[in-house]
Design a binder for these strands. Structure first.
Lengths: 158, 158
DNA sequence: ATCAATTGGTGGACAAATCAACGAAGAGAG
DNA sequence: CTCTCTTCGTTGATTTGTCCACCAATTGAT
């Protein structure tokens, strides 16, 4: 029972607020570039990546939702919008009558392939190439660990 | 003129995607806790912090917008909502007829003071205390540098 | 003094995210 | 078989964010 709050030290505060702020800025800038150059949002890009990562570009709905870590409702709305634009299609699932697949279309695949090189270059320019190899390693390690801990806590409380 | 895209190495990719994913997870979890315990959103919290950081809790509108790094339109809408809840008030600016101040109210101050200790504790629990001192240092440094570079680039292109 | 150009801020229309309620199909118990 | 419980996914209402046009005050030029 700790009554007294342990505030953050100056460096801890810089780490936390800097982290959040850096994220917001990068997301803003990279999202804007992506949109301008390829007509895809960050969210579209994430979905297409998850679909191309998998055989035939086809995935069950909730599996996809877990992959991008969105709530099912958000996923449903977003997939509906992407389907309207022809980037993906829904397909029924024979062995489970309530289920659905999401499948990437040739248009979707082409959009992703067109977007990817410039997007990756932008990620390098704004972020990765600004980091030393050691910093990259530290960040990779630390994010893996923190995410793992969050998973555990969620399991414990679910 | 580099024609061939330089893809990310496995570790670079883990650093980038882990970074984004870690941010989203932390934001989700901490935002939810904050909301549940204090009735404040992440955005509310950020505004209140910027206001308490300054004498009399009073700031010019666009100055506040720059501080939280939001577009003026978003700021305007958000402040309007916060004003409706009594967390802040607008005040006219005597020496510039179009200007406005945003001022934190006692209610807003109380809300922030109530929220802060638990929020900071949550930030520690989920993030800061999971990091070694060295990792904190690396993250603080790197975010400062990346943000600085982004500022420069924005200036250059503005 | 007047007239453009800039700055500070608002407001509405639209897009996207969250929340909560729902329906339809499967799974398990009796 | 039928009844309940869970899972899969959709839908509509509400909140939040973005885009863009706009007004009013200020500045600067002549």
């Amino acid at each position: 029972m700790e009554e007294i709050p342990r505030w953050l030290s100056a460096e801890e505060e810089q780490a936390w607020r800097g982290f959040v702020r850096m994220h917001d800025r990068l997301r803003f800038r990279l999202g804007r570039e992506l949109q301008a150059e390829s007509g895809l949002s960050f969210a579209d890009y994430a979905v297409l990546v998850e679909l191309t990562d998998v055989p035939e570009g086809r995935r069950r709905f909730l599996e996809l939702a877990r992959a991008v870590e969105w709530e099912k409702s958000r996923t449903s709305h977003h997939i509906a919008r992407m389907a309207k634009r022809g980037l993906v299609v829904r397909e029924e699932c024979p062995e489970d009558g309530r289920g659905a697949f999401v499948v990437i279309t040739p248009v979707g695949r082409a959009a992703l392939e067109a977007a990817a090189p410039r997007h990756v270059a932008a990620v390098r320019r704004a972020f990765i190439d600004r980091l030393s190899p050691q910093e990259v390693r530290v960040l990779a390690d630390l994010s893996r660990r923190v995410l793992g801990d969050l998973d555990e806590q969620d399991d414990g409380c679910g």
